[in-house]
Amino acid sequence: MTVPGSAVGGLNLLHRLDARVKIVGLVGFAVVVVTTPPQAAWAFVLYALTLVFLAALARLSPLAVGKRLLVIVPFVVVVAIFLPFFHPEGRVLVEWGPLRVTDRGALIFWNTAAKAVLSTWGMIILGLTTSFPELVNGLSDLRMPRVFVLTLSFMHRYSRLFLEESQSMRRAMASRNYNPRWLGQVPALGKMLGALFLRSYSRGERVYVAMVSRGYEGTFALNGRRRLRATDLAFAVFILGAAAVIRIVVAAGGF
């Protein structure tokens, strides 16, 4: 796992877009994908092509995207494992002793796997082309409640600090030959986390004092609202338009 907002270098078109259109566009895309019935296999191919286009536009390395896609593997595997055990109704595709894979079972597997890959892929593009502060600003501009926006920006600021602290503590533990191999050795890690919590709590108190010292009274504004440019709108029209057209053709029973 990496720290959020680890948008990698490069300043091409997709990186420069306003975070708002990327959030709305890719979240909207994911929603459309999830609502598409799995029988329309061609639609999923078109969705995938749209994402390939975007990823190429952003010059994302396929390896980086692929690595991040691994997070869905456990769930896909679980569905695959249970495939022979359920949905015994329907046309049998493969039979192996008491185990049967039916077309219904296979369809469920296809449905989950394809949708998981496509929506996750879209969110990966969002994550890889948007830095965390941009993401927070985007959410703020989209009128996400202030508590969350501010908490997110705090979290981003301090998670790095805490990660560094926890890493240096881990190094200190490793220098004294702590190398946990199984659950029984875990409590030492817990002690370390306890120390981290104490540090982070007093950090929170000190930050609060620093804020109050500068006139904080419960809420504050982060940034002014920015205006969307033509390229931002073009992106939104492209991604939402592509998803909508594909979905509408599916609904109309096309192909």
Binding site: R157, R206, V209, R214, G215, F220, A221, L222
Partner: peptide, 23 residues
């Protein structure tokens, strides 16, 4: 404050410096 990490709690330098005057 002694530890600047306590004082710079927002994402960017500009936001942090603007925090006081905005308040």
């Amino acid at each position: 404050f002694q530890d600047p990490e306590d004082q710079l709690f927002l994402g960017t330098v500009g936001q942090d410096v603007a925090f006081g005057p905005a308040n």
